Amino acid sequence: DNLVIALHSYEPSHDGDLGFEKGEQLRILEQSGEWWKAQSLTTGQEGFIPFNFVAKA
């Protein structure tokens, strides 16, 4: 599955970004460039995340 774990917390800075906490698990929905579309397994919310803040779970 496309699961990743957050290496750092991220505060959203643009509409459509997904904020998350360090250690949170996310499911990657789309990989494109440096911003990936993801869904939080904690909150169920979707949005874009910086790819370098996460690692394969």
Rank of each mutant, 00 (worst) to 15 (best):
E46I: 15
E30N: 09
E34S: 13
I5A: 03
F20N: 00
F20C: 04
R27I: 12
T42N: 09
R27Q: 06
S32L: 12
S40N: 10
F20W: 02
S32P: 03
D15F: 12
I28W: 02
Q25I: 15
E30I: 09
I49T: 00
G47I: 03
I49K: 00
D1H: 11
I28G: 01
I49W: 03
L18K: 03
E46A: 09
H14G: 12
A55D: 07
A57E: 11
I5F: 10
L7C: 12
D15Y: 11
V4E: 01
Q25R: 13
Y10A: 02
V54A: 03
N2F: 15
V54P: 01
S9A: 11
Y10F: 12
H8S: 09
I49C: 06
T42Q: 11
E34W: 14
Y10K: 07
S32A: 11
V4N: 00
N2C: 14
G19W: 06
F20A: 01
P12M: 06
Q45C: 10
F48G: 02
R27K: 09
S40W: 02
V54H: 02
K22R: 10
K22C: 09
E24M: 04
F53T: 05
S9D: 10
L3S: 03
G23A: 03
E11C: 14
E46W: 12
T43E: 01
A57N: 10
L41Q: 04
L7K: 06
I28F: 00
A57F: 14
R27T: 05
W36F: 08
A55P: 03
S40C: 06
A38S: 01
L29H: 02
L18W: 05
T42H: 11
I49E: 02
R27N: 05
P50H: 08
W35E: 04
G33C: 07
Q45P: 01
I49Q: 01
G19E: 05
F51I: 09
G44T: 03
R27L: 14
S9R: 13
R27D: 01
G47R: 01
L29W: 04
P12Y: 05
S40P: 00
H14I: 08
A55N: 06
K37C: 11
P12S: 14
K37T: 07
Q25S: 10
H8M: 14
A6Q: 01
H8F: 15
A6C: 05
G23R: 02
K22N: 03
A55R: 10
P12W: 06
H8R: 15
H8Y: 15
F53L: 12
S13T: 14
G16P: 02
F53M: 10
S40F: 02
L41P: 04
L7H: 05
Q25P: 10
D17A: 13
